[in-house]
């Protein structure tokens, strides 16, 4: 195996309390702390581990998004990726960018870069789609190993332990393949400050979807973004009878 492509998305930091814009067209992103999608960090870590085990020779980090997306590519480079590709999509196009677009971009890049493995996070914590890895595999017509809990290289390809409802499932795939990282796959390392400095010198290529022949024109329209409803205050009832009565009243039983 020679090359691993990892997807890294810039998202609002998990610790930030997300607020809806007053005009309800989306959420407030300006002046808000962003970082790499946590599942993508796990994907990057897995790719670097493969390189450290000499299974992979090169790790390429890809981010699709506005200029600031380069920050998360730099983080991936600081963690140990070798080079970065920034596919620039901004403005309205980016606001309405869907997994289908991203997977077409990633698939094309995987072919152009002659990647043997594409590793993505299982989902991004902003739109929670959980579709990109699956769609990328479909576009490429490669096997997929989603929700990876463990990835082992064998002579024939990969042995993957997947997280499924209520347990684990072990599958075998050939290479090339597309994987998506689940939470317990590994513990991502820190980007140390010296490595962040070194990362500044690693190559980062900037391209557009057009260069890849992918059309990212929006096909959907956001009608309204709403805050989740505020939880109603609860009430303490004196006894079970009253409780049953209230539940009946509310049409719950």
């Amino acid at each position: 195996m020679s090359r691993v492509l990892v997807g890294v998305k810039r998202v609002i930091d998990y610790a930030v309390k997300v607020r809806v814009k007053p005009d309800k067209t989306g959420v407030v992103t300006e002046g808000v702390k962003h970082s790499m999608n946590p599942f993508d960090e796990i994907a990057v870590e897995e790719a670097i581990k493969l390189k450290e085990k000499k299974i992979a020779t090169e790790v390429i980090a890809v981010s699709v998004g506005p200029t600031q997306s380069q920050e998360v590519i730099r983080t991936a480079l600081a963690m140990g990726a070798d080079r970065g590709v920034h596919v620039e999509v901004s403005g309205k196009d980016y606001d309405l960018l869907q997994p289908i677009h991203v997977s077409k971009i990633l698939a094309k890049l995987a072919l152009d870069e002659k990647a043997d493995l594409v590793i993505l996070g299982k989902q991004a914590i902003d739109d929670d789609s959980n579709q990109t890895a699956q769609m990328t595999a479909a576009v490429l017509d490669w096997p997929q190993g989603t929700f990876c809990n463990k990835v082992e290289k064998t002579d024939a390809g990969l042995t993957i332990t997947r997280e499924i409802d209520g347990g684990l499932e072990v599958i075998k795939t050939k290479i090339p393949a597309v994987l998506s990282a689940d939470l317990r796959l590994n513990t991502p390392r820190y980007a140390t400050l010296p490595n962040i400095m070194k990362a500044k010198k690693k190559p980062l290529k900037k391209i557009t979807p057009k260069d890849l022949g992918v059309d990212t024109a929006p096909r959907i329209e956001v009608v309204s973004v709403e805050e989740p409803p505020v939880r109603q205050a609860g009430a303490v009832v004196p006894d079970v009878d009253t409780l049953v009565g209230k539940l009946k009243e509310g049409g719950h039983i």
């Binding site: 920050e71 983080t75 820190y190 140390t192 400050l193 962040i196 500044k200």
Partner: peptide, 17 residues
């Protein structure tokens, strides 16, 4: 830009480790 790129990992280290 350099110092900004240090802030995240440095904070993260203190919070998590």
């Amino acid at each position: 830009e350099l110092i900004t790129s240090f802030v995240g990992p440095f904070e993260k280290f203190f919070l998590e480790s």
